[in-house]
């Protein structure tokens, strides 16, 4: 289903140009980070790829086809967990697949082990901390063995340790053969994880480059200003 080719994708709810002609080509390897200011259209772009929004113009082609041939999973910025156990939530995405109950339980237990939540399996999912919830949401998406994983700011409200835990899970998912497409506002994280960077502003892709080049020699003026404005070590300390 790769490459995914977006051409002049427009998303204009109530006439408002949220995506204003997105051109982008994503291949099936590695981790692609989507950066851009608040309201740029990052979340909407992920939702379009997840098939949750109908676009108003342009095209999305999955290796030339109109629909993805393999499984896609998306983890939302604020994942909703069912009022049941951690283990049941981990296996939720397997319900539509018609797997046997033991197989669902086996896979749920497996992903919980991978994200370090085995000891919480019998607890209520709604009693988890923010970082644990995010790991459970990742486990839930991982359990369906997606070929493409979409992550919307998976570490937005997490402390450094929890962030690191999520990042190493994301790396492991990539190593397992899934393409990862994720958004973040954490430039340090982008440097640590990204193979390539897509920079979005005002509903358009301004730049798409390999990570190293993006941070050392951004091609667009917008990206240059964004990096300068967002980098934590640019904060001016009093002398």
């Amino acid at each position: 289903m790769f490459p995914i080719r977006l051409e002049q994708v427009h998303f204009t709810p109530n006439g408002r140009a949220v995506l204003a002609g997105v051109d982008l080509c994503v291949d099936g390897e590695g981790i692609t980070l989507i950066l851009g200011p608040n309201g740029a259209g990052k979340t909407v772009l992920l939702r379009v790829l997840a098939g949750l929004e109908r676009i108003h113009g342009g095209s999305v082609a999955w290796n030339g086809a109109g629909a993805p041939a393999e499984r896609i999973a998306m983890v939302f910025q604020h994942p909703v967990l069912l009022r049941t156990t951690v283990a049941d939530n981990a296996g939720l995405g397997l319900r539509p697949l018609g797997l046997s109950r033991p197989e669902v339980q086996r896979r749920a237990a497996d992903v919980l082990g991978r994200v370090g939540l085995s000891h919480r399996a019998r607890d209520s999912a709604r009693h988890l901390s923010g970082g644990e919830r995010q790991r459970l949401a990742l486990a839930r998406a991982w359990a369906v063995r997606p070929r493409l994983l979409l992550l919307d700011e998976p570490t937005a409200a997490l402390d450094p340790t929890a962030t690191e835990a999520v990042e190493s899970i994301v790396r492991e998912i990539r190593t397992g053969g899934a393409k990862v497409l994720m958004t973040t506002h954490n430039l340090g994280q982008a440097m640590r994880l990204a193979d390539d960077i897509v920079f979005i502003e005002a509903g358009r892709v301004r730049e798409h480059s390999p990570a190293a080049r993006f941070f050392s020699r951004p091609q667009s003026q917008e990206a240059r200003l964004f990096i300068r404005g967002e980098l934590p070590w640019r904060i001016a300390f009093p002398d």
Partner: peptide, 24 residues
């Protein structure tokens, strides 16, 4: 309204989504 998008993204059809909802 809480679960709709999430369940849709996980590939639930409407019937299965409603059953899941009722159980919840």
């Amino acid at each position: 309204s809480d679960y709709r998008i999430e369940l849709t993204a996980l590939g639930f059809d409407r019937r299965l989504a409603v059953l899941t909802l009722l159980h919840d």
